[in-house]
Amino acid sequence: MLTLSSCTSEQLHRSLRDGSFRLYLGQLALKVSSDIPEFIAAFRQLYGDHPVTLGGGEYDFDIAISAPALWRRWLRRNASFEFSGDTPFLPMEVGHAHALFEWGLNWAIASFLHHCLIIHSAVVEWQGKGVLLSAVSGSGKSTLSAELSEQGWRLLSDELALLDSDLKLIPLARPVSLKNSSIDIIRQRHPMAVIGPLARDTHKGTVAHLKVSADAVGHNLVPAVPKLIVFPKWVENAPLRVEPVGAGQAALRLIDQAFNYSILGAEGFRRLVALVRTTEAWQIEYSSLDEARDALETLVAEHG
């Protein structure tokens, strides 16, 4: 299949303008439209390995990154996230358009894909075993999943675990969102990593996106079987601590992090119970990414 980086600039611009562009994110097909050069440049860099088509066809989400209505255009150039022609969020400056796309896409997935139970969690895979890394914002989940992905783990998602009715994890490999100091940490540890433009002074501070490996993108249609649930927490200078978590406790913590648990009703409960019954749950506290990775690889080997 055609990848984004193999399209010519002219093809890409035309297709993003005339509504014929489709981006394939695993099972999801996105119709993406844009005429904002800053967005298109970052999009090309970060999604280069993703499959695309330029001939129209069916899609799940209809997304446009576009210049906002005239009356919002003064002072600086802005970009809007349009979903089905609606603008659910305030516009942001054009330099943040690629971050707006990622946030908007997260919102769309969490708001509409109710055939899956959607949990706020990173998903990675090691030696064929799926691992949920579930944590509240600010506990280093994205940094840890970026590190694992750079060390050869397969990344399925840095933000959203999608659990389907067969209890499989649906992959959504796409750029990993790094915030503030974690941008430099990943850059220093992995000088070859491709990191997109910095979006400074957003409501989450400075944000940049790590391009995921072509291998992770290439496996985007292969679901993973969940084997471990890990609640990671980064604590400055803390010694490594690895502790088991009971199934009931794990279920309660996942409910807390689920976006559509109540929408799924009894089915949500059933799916969550099945998940914690077929996996083991652990929590780890760490200050060193190397130690955390070692601990996770041991957990997968011994308990996955």
Partner: peptide, 22 residues
């Protein structure tokens, strides 16, 4: 309908059922 569209239909019906239950 094709599978992709079926999934969207299913997801929307799940959401509507949740609203009615609530």
């Amino acid at each position: 309908l094709p599978e992709r569209l079926q999934k969207q239909v299913k997801a929307s019906l799940i959401e509507a059922a949740a609203f009615q239950r609530d």
